[in-house]
Design a protein around this nucleic acid. Structure first.
Lengths: 206, 206
DNA sequence: TGTACATCAGTGAACGCGCGTTCACTGATGTAC
DNA sequence: TGTACATCAGTGAACGCGCGTTCACTGATGTAC
């Protein structure tokens, strides 16, 4: 588990981030402590300060890495759906949920840890890159709507983002006692289907 | 502010719940401490134990009161929209957001504090009452959809719940650095509009 | 290849702090007579 | 109306704990000669 090679760790910085992600996933953003992350990495709490300014900084780095992966995943889904704007859009939506499922620690660090997107410039930049992909997908797709009944692309993408986030928070978490009536994937897929039908982007008949 | 009438407080139990709600609203569920709540109520931390089993129990009571108000608000909106299933449904959606706005402390205690809905039977009961209203509104409305293309009412209501919750979490919180592109109310209203159009419940033309 | 030395990653002890919780107590209230 | 007494809400001191952070240190690594 710990790849300690004696006195020097080798890659303590990343090991601390990984430990933080595990703890955040296991105990929520509240339960995360710097000391415990250090312990899990096989190191004294004081060693953390060689690599991070403190607790906040460590969480911010975990979130930053999350946004990085998130943006990549979304971009990949978007590209894969090309040249169909519809396919690209739907793939992007699915990628959102897939990311939340596969990287719960990152997701929590990003959206539930209280870390501000503006706490560092790099964090803001990568967060923008991520939301930019979704907006691009929405903008592409809305080209297929007659201009006079076309909602702003940013509103369009905000709708989908809110829907995806809501599904994750309410139904994709093994949240204590909140039973999911349907698999989250189905829930999101069907909701997006109805929504796109409402915009006239897919036919009303199934 | 504190209605202390000497040695005995008068209504310490509720004062503690109110203090907890203020703190949760101001500092997030993380920032809330029993000691601080006691201090804000003008009382020693030990006094809390005359009224609650401990920290958890106090939070749970705050959440319970939240669900109580929430259910009332939703029920009132539903009733007010009668006899139109559509009006009732839309009013219920608006009530969701209005509740989150007006009672942020309660909302956070209910959905972000990590308190389990099943931690007490009363909490589970009132949470069910709340979600029951939304499901009823969805079921009523879906009567107007031809049976063969009618989604299950519970899926319908889960969609709307997720959407509402997502809007609240992402855009209705003065969340640090997350700028809302549109007023949350507009965002939710327009999203629900598109969604209902997608179900054929309101005409495609505006 | 071997030795001296600079670098710096991690140690370990210590700190002050606020937390949740416990306990024996005491002061205020209200009821019985 | 006045007094004795039971009730119980709140006190205040104490506890053990783990936290984040600091500091002077030391051990391992790698580079210069």
């Amino acid at each position: 588990m710990h790849k300690k090679r004696g006195y020097h760790h080798g890659n303590l910085r990343q090991a601390l981030v990984d430990a933080a992600l595990n703890l955040i996933e296991a105990k929520g953003p509240t339960g995360f402590t710097l000391s415990e992350a250090a312990k899990e990495a096989g190191v004294t709490p004081a060693a953390v300060y060689r690599h991070f300014e403190g607790r906040e900084d460590l969480i911010a780095e975990a979130a930053r890495q999350g946004y990085e992966i998130f943006a990549d995943v979304m971009q990949y889904a978007y590209d894969k759906g090309q040249p169909s704007a519809l396919a690209a859009f739907e793939a992007t939506g699915r990628a959102y949920l897939a990311f939340a499922r596969k990287y719960p620690g990152h997701y929590i660090a990003m959206f539930e840890s209280g870390v501000s997107v503006n706490s560092t410039p790099e964090l803001a930049a990568v967060a923008n890159r991520a939301s930019g992909v979704l907006e691009k997908a929405a903008a592409d797709l809305s080209q297929h709507i007659p201009p006079e009944k076309r909602p702003p692309a940013s509103m369009f993408s905000a709708h989908i983002w809110a829907l995806s986030h809501g599904v994750v928070e309410l139904f994709a978490r093994n949240s204590p006692g909140r039973a999911s009536p349907f698999p989250p994937e189905d829930l999101l897929e069907s909701a997006i289907g109805v929504y796109l039908r409402g915009l006239g982007l897919i036919p009303a008949d199934d």
